[in-house]
């Protein structure tokens, strides 16, 4: 609960610091002179067309989805890792083998992802 208060204070502090700094800088600097050329998006100095319907490869989505899934697997490794040392004294075979089963399925998932070409030229 003390960490929670501290976390909230730090978040508010960092946000206010950034916002105040940007606000201060915008007030102190020279007045903004808007010109047509200056407000264009930067395309290496050329006046490019701005058609925003760029097609983006679906690989990025796939990486994001795979990241979610493997992240969840990693989350389950943390509690196991904490009690591994303690439970070695009581029930070593059990705790070793159950995680090996979990990791076997996880490794098979990674192997499938690799072999099916989802990680190709990413």
């Amino acid at each position: 609960m003390v960490p929670l208060i501290a976390i909230m204070v730090i978040t508010v502090l960092a946000t206010l610091f950034g916002a105040a700094l940007l606000f201060f800088v915008s007030k102190v600097g020279p007045k903004v002179k808007i010109s047509e050329i200056k407000s264009l998006s930067y395309e290496c100095g050329l006046v490019g067309e701005e058609k925003k319907s760029t097609k983006v490869s679906v690989k990025f989505y796939l990486v994001a989805i795979l990241f979610i899934l493997f992240d969840i697997e990693i989350i389950f490794l943390y509690p196991w890792a904490i009690i591994y040392n303690d439970m070695l004294t009581t029930n070593a075979v059990f705790i070793f083998s159950e995680m090996m089963v979990f990791m076997a399925v996880l490794l098979f998932g990674l192997f499938y992802v690799w072999r099916s070409g989802a990680l190709r030229w990413d």
């Binding site: 969840i72 389950f76 159950e98 996880l106 098979f108 998932g109």
Partner: peptide, 9 residues
Amino acid sequence: FEAISLLIL
């Protein structure tokens, strides 16, 4: 716990 690994697969 083990079923979750299968679900993720």
